[in-house]
Nucleic acid binder design. Structure first.
Lengths: 346, 346
DNA sequence: CTCAAAATGAGTTGCGTACCTCAAAACACC
DNA sequence: GGTGTTTTGAGGTACGCAACTCATTTTGAG
């Protein structure tokens, strides 16, 4: 009837006895310190393994003395999504200080590779972990690898640099996000045939390009009745997005769906309403004050969301686990793609 | 450019000096021990407040010595959702033992109020925290309140007992889940008019009743072209659900949508396919091996999911925070309603 | 076999808190 | 002013581990 999921609480002393060595040797093995014969290392490791020994987190944390410092390198300038991440980190301040964790925000121009790389290099040695919203560029990749080599734990946030040796990526699978958007547009259009428009910031941005790729994939394979128009590049700006879209709507009377890949949402919504094309199925990204309003008004039909609170907390937890040498709960730290419609607005 | 989110690391000794008292007195205040003048208590509290002092979690944990024990009281018998929760707890075993947390599963008949209440009463004094999948019944409520009075931290899991004094509920808002299901069925039907069927376990179950309530709300207000048929009560059994639904499908040729509120999914799918009514929009709950297959086959169109992994971890985290007297990160522990379609299957 | 280098043992200290004891001081009451 | 009670101080121990020192043993090369 009752079933226990955890094992007894051994200590290092027990492991030392088991392995037939002293506490000092166990300590040397545990922290990869030199001066232990390979054979002895094996014996100790086996004893740890055999008893599935886990160092007591609290004791280890207490003993190491100095507090851990993490840095969040984020885009400068106003960006609601990033501001949300910062706000959520602020909400955690009690949690952070109870664990003696210092978290600092560092604003920089993440869209300029050399500036970003310089910012990263400047952090070397000062932090135990760094979370960075990174551009995928060779210079940035090199800066990340340098930090990794210096022993800093690195997590890419929102936008990944898969070619680097970063320890973890906290963000969504953008291809899957695009696929989801495609499925939503296709399904919500509901059997009608016609054209579908795409508004993106730029196809040069990795996440945008991936989303468009996934979107097109689904449209081609599952919704042959819908044809996708060439991508409009609105640079995530309201005015430009509005202008481009207004022109497109004028030229195509049979647009039935619209996927807004990045920001510029305000402009997109305005173009739709001024053209009197409110019935167009409109799917976009992220739950902000604006998209929330548009969803409630029925202008937007669905938003693909990547919970910024979860991303902020996951980044901190992952950095902490990496710094402690604990395993990462992958399932927990995975950022899910949320479909938000009017009735499940968070 | 850089901005720090945390404060300096004070210790109890600092607080004692600040307040002009000894360590012993601070300790007495912190743990609500008797023998301190009200005036002194205030001075100490103010010093803590003024410096926004947070006890070092690791030190506190280490000092208290004995490990914490949590119990999960779950339904006996085969239940995929509950099995998943148990599996996810198993995945956490490293995390748990590194924190010296003991978690035990206790299987019982949660659908029999007196049996469940007896199981709960039997736990008194043995556990620091209890997570329970609870029936909302006066006897159960009393048992929960007794445990609370005995100092045990209580979390209701999946199914709430709002009238009790449980410390927290980990689960979804079932009315919102029903609304979401309604919105999905309505939208996916895509403008056609016709009838909509509902299959539930029982309208006597709180969560099922709430979901149906939310579903009907949306259908009535937003989809006047769809009329909802009387609820079929399949008792979450495949055979019974299939039989009832098959009969209903036979009588109504114009059924365009179907909401399966609980289990019995296998039977529902079978009834649909044997009647050759695959085009009916079918929305159900939870991602299991079965619903995953049905989604991929296109039989089911969407599933409302309440990530069991998240629920298991949230329950543990909440119990731990309660036991430590830490604040709960509400935003983090909130269980979201996930909409799962073929293209965002987790 | 000798000797230096490598490997290991034994031990100490400190992290910040919980929990405990005992003595001293402050206080209230008559 | 003396009594008893309440409040406060001072100090110790323990928790499990990190990080270190120094002495001792073992090993391998010549």
């Amino acid at each position: 009837m009752a079933e226990t999921l955890t094992t007894a609480a051994l200590t290092l002393k027990d492991i030392a006895r088991e392995a037939g060595v002293s506490l000092a040797t166990v300590d040397r093995v545990l922290h990869n310190r030199p001066g232990v014969r390979a054979d002895t290392v094996r014996r100790v490791r086996e004893a740890i393994e055999r008893n599935s020994f886990q160092p007591h987190v609290a004791a280890a944390e207490l003993a190491r003395g100095r507090a851990r410092r993490f840095a969040f390198v984020m885009p400068s300038g106003p960006n609601p999504f990033m501001q949300q991440i910062e706000a959520y980190l602020g909400e955690m301040s009690g949690w952070l200080s109870a664990r003696r964790l210092g978290v600092e925000m560092i604003a920089t121009d993440v869209f300029d590779a050399s500036v970003l790389a310089a910012s990263l290099e400047a952090l070397s040695g000062d932090y135990d972990g760094v979370a960075v919203v990174a551009l995928d560029h060779p210079t940035v990749r090199a800066a990340i690898n340098d930090l990794v080599d210096a022993g800093t734990k690195i997590v890419t946030l929102v936008s990944d640099v898969p070619s680097s040796r970063r320890h973890h990526y906290v963000g969504i699978d953008n291809i899957a996000a695009g696929r989801t958007a495609g499925a939503l547009v296709g399904r919500l259009v509901g059997g009608r045939s016609g054209k579908v428009a795409i508004v993106a910031g730029s196809q040069g941005l990795r996440d945008h390009a991936e989303r468009i790729f996934g979107f097109n994939q689904v449209m081609a394979s599952e919704f042959p009745g819908l044809s996708v128009l060439p991508v409009l590049e609105g640079r995530d700006e309201d005015a430009r997005s509005e202008q481009l879209l207004a022109r497109l709507l004028g030229r195509h009377a049979d647009i039935v769906g619209l996927y807004n890949v990045g920001a510029g949402t305000q402009g997109v919504a305005k173009a739709l309403s001024e053209a009197g094309r409110d019935k167009v199925v409109f799917v976009g990204h992220d739950v902000t004050a604006l998209t929330r309003r548009l969803l409630l008004q029925g202008v937007m039909d669905a938003a693909i969301s990547q919970n910024p609170g979860h991303e902020a907390r996951a980044a901190v937890r992952v950095l902490l686990a990496l710094a402690r040498g604990e395993p990462i709960l992958r399932e927990q730290e995975k950022i899910r793609i949320d479909i938000v419609m009017r009735d499940n607005l968070p």
